[in-house]
């Protein structure tokens, strides 16, 4: 296929389904393009699962040590360009209140993108720093402190171990909220309240409120693997608490630290705003 000149794009008329299909109907996997055979390219990654790697490292106090550089998935490497699709997680449906589901479903696709912290270059917050984050993590840990560094926007949170919530009159809305920590056996539990509600819980438009509580659980069953799960409680949006599936992270096989990554001057915001305006015009 040869393209001799630039393609002038105009009259890009999106199907009406784009603006009317509910969120849940828009989730799917891309089908292979029948006119375009698979492409072998440098940078594609064929995932190979790491072995367990031995027993759980432990700190001086005997608790698990989560320290290390971690990638999402099982390979110990960046998997953004994996040639094997992720399998859908088996999770319970989110028990949204009907009015919340209606509000989320009414959002256009561009509006959902505009609301995502990754697009707006906002801190990802909790649980987004684990779940809405395509880049690696670094954990630095000692018996009295849990430090979570993320490459995405070079953000971080540091939480004492153990820690109670601040008194109610000292609470303030924060991207990372106010986190209380405790151990349940070998599982670290981080319970967070008092959120700045701008970062969503998920990129699908699931928003936080002043009553959102996120309970995260972190464990390291073997040397090479870290597992993360979160529960959301919010009487403003949910009919009952919802708990995610366990997510798997693997210990970096080569990289010893994170690299610079700042979300500045994201031109996608302007692009999505144009698209959102077009979608609104079509809805009229």
């Amino acid at each position: 296929m040869t393209v001799r000149t630039l393609v002038t794009l105009g009259a890009v008329s999106l199907g009406s389904a784009l603006v009317s299909a509910p969120l849940w109907a828009q989730i799917g996997e891309q089908q292979p393009n029948p006119d375009k055979p698979f492409v072998e390219a440098r940078g594609n990654v064929t995932p190979v699962r790491l072995p367990p790697g031995g027993s759980t490292p432990r700190m001086a106090d005997g608790k698990p040590d989560f320290s290390g550089v971690w990638f999402s998935g099982p390979t110990g490497r960046a998997n953004a360009w994996s040639v094997v699709p992720d399998q859908p997680r088996k999770e319970d449906p989110i028990p949204f209140k009907p009015e919340v589901r209606k509000k989320i479903d009414s959002m256009t696709r561009a509006e959902r993108e505009l609301g995502r912290a990754q697009v707006a270059c906002r801190p990802l917050g909790v649980p987004g720093m684990w779940t809405d984050n395509p880049y690696p993590h670094q954990i630095v840990m000692k018996p009295t402190m849990f430090v979570h560094l993320i490459e995405s926007n070079n953000n971080w949170r540091a939480v004492p171990l153990p820690k109670a919530h601040k008194p109610a009159d000292e609470q303030e809305p924060l991207y990372m909220g106010d986190t209380a920590t405790r151990w349940e056996g070998d599982t670290l539990v981080l319970e967070t309240i008092s959120f700045d509600t701008r970062p969503w819980i998920q990129g699908n438009g699931w928003f936080k409120t002043e009553q959102t509580k996120v309970i995260e659980r972190l464990r390291r069953p073997t040397r090479n693997f870290l597992e993360y799960q979160y529960t959301v409680e919010d009487p403003n949006t949910l009919t009952r608490p919802w708990t995610s599936a366990w997510r798997e992270f693997s210990l970096s096989v080569a990289e010893l630290t994170l690299t610079e990554n700042f979300c500045t001057n994201n031109e996608n915001v302007e692009q999505f705003e144009k698209l959102a305006e077009q979608e609104r015009e079509k809805q009229k």
């Binding site: 296929m1 040869t2 393209v3 001799r4 000149t5 630039l6 393609v7 002038t8 794009l9 105009g10 009259a11 890009v12 008329s13 999106l14 199907g15 389904a17 784009l18 299909a21 969120l23 109907a25 828009q26 989730i27 799917g28 996997e29 891309q30 089908q31 999402s72 992720d86 696709r109 561009a110 959902r112 993108e113 995502r116 990754q118 697009v119 779940t131 809405d132 984050n133 395509p134 995405s152 998920q202 990129g203 699908n204 996608n268 692009q271 999505f272 698209l275």
Partner: peptide, 30 residues
């Protein structure tokens, strides 16, 4: 083969795919 001045009108047949949690954002949305 695309030649000069062609205006492409794409009306339908859009494959939808939401960004899963780990994507920076969905290119396919833009």
């Amino acid at each position: 083969r695309v030649t000069t001045g062609i205006v492409l009108s794409v009306a339908t047949a859009i494959l939808f795919a939401a960004a899963p949690a780990s994507a920076h954002h969905a290119f396919a949305a833009e």
